[in-house]
Design a protein around this nucleic acid. Structure first.
Length: 491
RNA sequence: CGGGGUGUAGCGCAGCCCGGUUAGCGCGCGUCGUUCGGGACGACGAGGCCGGGAGUUCAAAUCUCCCCACCCCGACCA
């Protein structure tokens, strides 16, 4: 057990905050609401980026980069969009500073006021659609499948490292299509891609579905999302994929000539995942001993710790440790051999455990004598003494097993915390008792959703895509319902 | 942005009510020695404009006001 570390049971929110700080993932910065992502945290994000980037490219997308600043007038072009983001935009009004008249410090030069203020992008639809207008003339220019990796700013009142920060990193895909059908297919394709990434790489099972109108992206016709369940029973939206219809094409006048030589507005999608995925990853798997990272996203998958009394012993052990390191690297496994003399083995054990390194190998005098090695896995904290000769193959299998085990555990947790509920009493009781996903009937109205939110703080997380139609009565209003939706309290 | 709380060494805290020696304690940090299979032990040592600013006072970590940051609870949101 790590020293001075709050357990999940004691205080889940505090456990998360301490974990992020103590595992050196990120910290608060001098700027309110903005975080510094530290090397340990950034390495995981980089790994996520590289996997997602490859997936985007494999599905025909290319990367580009659009400006950080957006002219204010662009924002007002799409009514829902501006309304959705207006309250959280940072605005640039001046372009110059000058020395203060009293000689102390520096002030904004009021003579350098911008004629048109610039918004720091909270998302890039407007600047991108203004640009696409010039790129699209004919159906031959379609589809346009572009992604960008960028930072965005949303001026949040209440922030938490990774989960909600004023500035965050993300990717945003923006595509243009000839037909509605094609755009819808793109939206669904990306949703599947996100779900696959969450499940196969992050080892987090996700629900796939549609957002209710209340939760829909400002400016979208339909928002698809993947939704994950955290260990405290709260839901976390892990990725969104929007079908934008022709809303932005109309707002920015993006028309193309069809095969029939007719002018038509293009069909659009946009989709994104952010550094919030880091929060999901941390909260899905970690425990009271610290961080747990699925092997496929760990920057260091294996650490080797030597145990020795003197230099001769260390030299002998190092020889063997380096052989094992090479054998592991030959299998594509990332390994760190920690022969620092400045920390003791026990200290290193605790440290790597807390930082979530999936597999630890320990090699000491006893192992040298018996030709063995100790292998410890982070997910179950099990330790075993194994023959040293075949350890590389064994580590490879253990890493695969950890990846699988984390997913299985997370899935079992979700299943144990998903409930079909038909009465309003039960609905409230489950929420207050243990949280989780609640499958309940809903009459389909925004009013009911709002009322439920006001009374319980729970919202509709998804309208599941694969749900079987089921006649029922709304859990709140008693009015007829065509199927169950998923409620939860959410991050 | 509303309500509550907290800012004292890198981290965790005591001191503050009731103003007055040189501001303490634990962990961590440095040197040396003994240790090394789950966060070792001893000796010596370094480290503070007491969150920032303004006031009250002979005197402020301590009292008053303003600001800033963080945490919790709401509203808003990925």
């Amino acid at each position: 057990m790590a020293k001075n570390f709050t357990t999940r049971k004691e205080n889940y929110a505090q456990w998360y905050n301490e974990l992020v700080i103590k595992a050196d993932l990120a910290e608060n910065s001098a700027v309110r609401g903005c975080m510094v992502i530290k090397p340990n945290g950034y390495a995981i994000w980089e790994k996520m980026q590289s996997v997602l980037d490859r997936m985007f490219k494999e599905t025909g997308h290319v990367n580009a980069y659009f400006p950080l600043f957006i002219p204010k007038s662009f924002f007002s072009r799409e009514a829902d969009h501006v309304e959705g983001f207006a309250k959280e935009c940072a605005v640039v009004t001046h372009y110059r500073l000058k020395s203060a008249p009293d000689g102390k410090g520096i002030v904004v030069d009021n003579d350098a006021r911008l004629e048109e203020e610039l918004i720091i992008r909270p998302t890039s639809e407007t600047i991108i659609w203004d640009t696409y207008k010039n790129w699209i003339q004919s159906y031959r220019d379609l589809p346009l499948l572009i992604n960008q990796w960028a930072n965005v700013v949303r001026w949040e009142m209440r922030t938490r490292l990774f989960l909600r920060t004023a500035e965050f990193l993300w990717q945003e895909g923006h595509t243009a299509h000839e037909t509605k059908k094609e755009a819808l297919e793109e939206t669904e394709k990306i949703l599947a891609l996100y779900a696959g990434f969450a499940e196969q790489w992050m080892a987090i099972p996700v629900l796939r579905g549609l957002k209710s109108p209340n939760e829909r992206f400002a400016g979208a016709v339909e928002t698809y999302c993947i939704e994950a369940l955290m260990q405290d029973g709260k839901a976390l939206q892990a990725g969104t994929s929007h079908f934008l219809g022709q809303n932005f094409a109309k707002a920015f006048d993006v028309k193309f000539l069809t095969r029939e030589n007719k002018q038509e507005y293009v069909w659009a999608t946009s989709w994104g995942v952010s550094t919030r995925l880091m929060g999901a990853l941390i909260m899905a798997h970690s425990d009271d001993h610290g961080l747990v990272i699925p092997p496929k996203l760990a920057h260091t998958q294996v650490v080797i710790v030597p145990i020795y009394k003197n230099k001769e012993q260390l030299d002998q052990i190092s020889g063997k440790a380096l052989q094992i390191k090479e054998a592991l690297q030959a299998k594509g496994i990332t390994v760190k051999y920690d022969d620092r003399d400045t920390h003791k083995p026990g200290w290193k054990f605790s440290e790597y455990e807390f930082k979530g390194v999936p597999v630890r190998l320990a090699l000491g005098p006893r192992d040298m004598e018996n030709n063995t090695i100790e292998i410890a896995r982070r997910d179950t904290l099990e330790k075993q003494i194994r023959p040293a000769g075949t350890i590389a193959g064994e580590v490879e299998r253990v890493l695969e097993d950890i990846q699988k085990n984390l997913y299985t555990k997370a899935l079992a947790f979700r299943e144990a915390n998903s409930h079909k509920v038909d009465s309003w009493e039960a609905f409230k009781n489950i929420l207050d008792d243990k949280g989780g996903f609640i499958y309940a009937h809903w009459d389909g109205t925004a009013e009911t959703e709002q009322k439920i939110k006001e009374e319980t703080r729970a919202t509709i997380r998804v309208i599941p895509l694969d749900a079987e139609p089921e006649e029922g009565k709304c859990v709140y209003s008693g009015k007829p319902s065509a199927g169950r939706v998923v409620f939860a309290r959410a991050y």
